[in-house]
Simulated assay, not measured.
Amino acid sequence: MFEVIFGPMELPLSPPLSPMLAKAVKAMPQGDLYYEPKFDGFRCIVFRDGDEVELSSRGEKPLTRYFPELVETVKRELPERCVIDGEIIIRKDNRLDFDSLSQRIHPAASRVKLLSEQIPAGFMAFDVLALGDEDLTGLPFSERRARLAGALKDSGPPIHLTPITTSYEKALRWFEEFEGAGLDGVIAKPADVLYAPDKRLMFKVKHERTADVVVAGFRWHKSGPIVGSLLLGLWHDQGLQHVGVAASFPMARRAELVEELEPYRMTEIAEHPWAGWAEQGDGDRMPGAVSRWTGKKDLSWVPLRPELVCEVAYEHMEGMRFRHTARFRRWRTDRTPESCGYDQLEVPVAFDLDEILGT
């Protein structure tokens, strides 16, 4: 899906470049730190050299062709020659919408053009790596942040400068309040940290909740006949909805799961709740459908009688599905599958995205 092609540029730093990363922590850290909201989008380093613009993903792949409107925004709103780290975002109904963002990764240029007009993307800037001929990666973050604010002082939407605070108490409030606008946590950055590509020198605090879900199938692991992931469902008025997967298991546990799931395997998929599931207009996919992210990857699955219930940890919902891979906690033999519905899920209080962005 991605073509790894970057054009030549005369900048202190050139694409591809891995962004600096954050390691997950359970509680909000304290100290000489800067706190920022964690925006739910595509991590992106913007390279601009005059009329030449490249958008580079976290995995060092070009995103440029998928966001033509953002290229024009960069030319209009960012400094003539710069390298800026941030997040590509899409807002819908006054909150961030990752599902609309993921639809932008499409092989057809006509589709990309249409979506760029219907759901244009914005860019949330949170670090600057170069300005003009100056490489800023050797400066502490406190200085880079000041340089970034100065560089963007005349920029306007859809380019945004991320909010920031040094107040631990305010960071805690952000963590609780901002989720209702589609943000998924808080990033804490040491004031003196230098920019180190691909190093986890920052901290991220994300929400974690639990839910009881139906295990309705599984996929084999790529390495052989052991369980790769469990396919999870929740009941609602239209039947059993596929909500995501749980996939993080030790190898020995994956082998044990084969035996545990064996009594529930179905030979006739026609009797399974997902047997007639086809591509739907709201973006939901049947568990075996090809994803735009995985291309030709084998996503075939083994149907199970929807009788097993397990507890999983998840961060937040994106529409009807878990936004990220859920984490298996334990079997719930005390719960019936029919009792596993959406009504058990915690819904964050709505928050005005404009208030966060200062617009």
Rank of each mutant, 00 (worst) to 15 (best):
E307A: 15
P157A: 07
F249N: 06
L172D: 09
F141P: 00
V25W: 11
L55F: 13
G224Q: 09
V193M: 04
T73Q: 04
L308D: 09
L261W: 07
P15K: 13
V349S: 07
G217R: 08
V227M: 02
E338V: 05
F328T: 08
R265M: 13
P197M: 03
L230S: 00
E279I: 00
V128D: 07
R91H: 14
H160F: 14
G138P: 09
S116Q: 01
A313S: 14
F126L: 04
K153D: 06
F6Y: 15
L114M: 12
D32S: 12
W277G: 02
E117K: 12
P337A: 06
E307W: 01
C310Q: 09
R43Y: 04
A255C: 02
N94R: 15
L148K: 10
F203G: 01
D354S: 15
I164S: 14
E87W: 05
W274P: 00
I164C: 14
R95S: 13
L78A: 10
G7Y: 01
E3R: 09
P8G: 13
C310Y: 05
E72L: 07
P157D: 08
S339F: 00
E72Q: 13
T333M: 02
S102G: 10
I159V: 15
V128Q: 06
W277E: 03
C44I: 00
F2P: 06
A151W: 04
A278I: 02
E69T: 03
L33G: 13
E77I: 01
E262W: 05
A27H: 15
H272D: 08
E179N: 05
G182W: 12
R76H: 10
P12N: 08
V205T: 10
V83K: 06
I159W: 02
A125T: 03
A125V: 03
V213H: 10
A252V: 06
D51K: 11
E268F: 05
R81A: 11
E87I: 02
P190A: 07
R76D: 15
D334Q: 04
L240V: 10
D154H: 14
L201E: 13
A181I: 10
S229M: 00
A188P: 08
G185L: 09
S18G: 12
L257F: 08
R253I: 07
R111F: 00
H272A: 12
P157I: 03
F39D: 01
Q118L: 13
G341I: 04
L194S: 09
D32A: 13
A171P: 03
D51N: 15
D40C: 08
L114H: 07
Y195E: 04
L101W: 03
F178K: 05
P225F: 05
H236N: 15
E72Y: 01
K199H: 13
R81G: 05
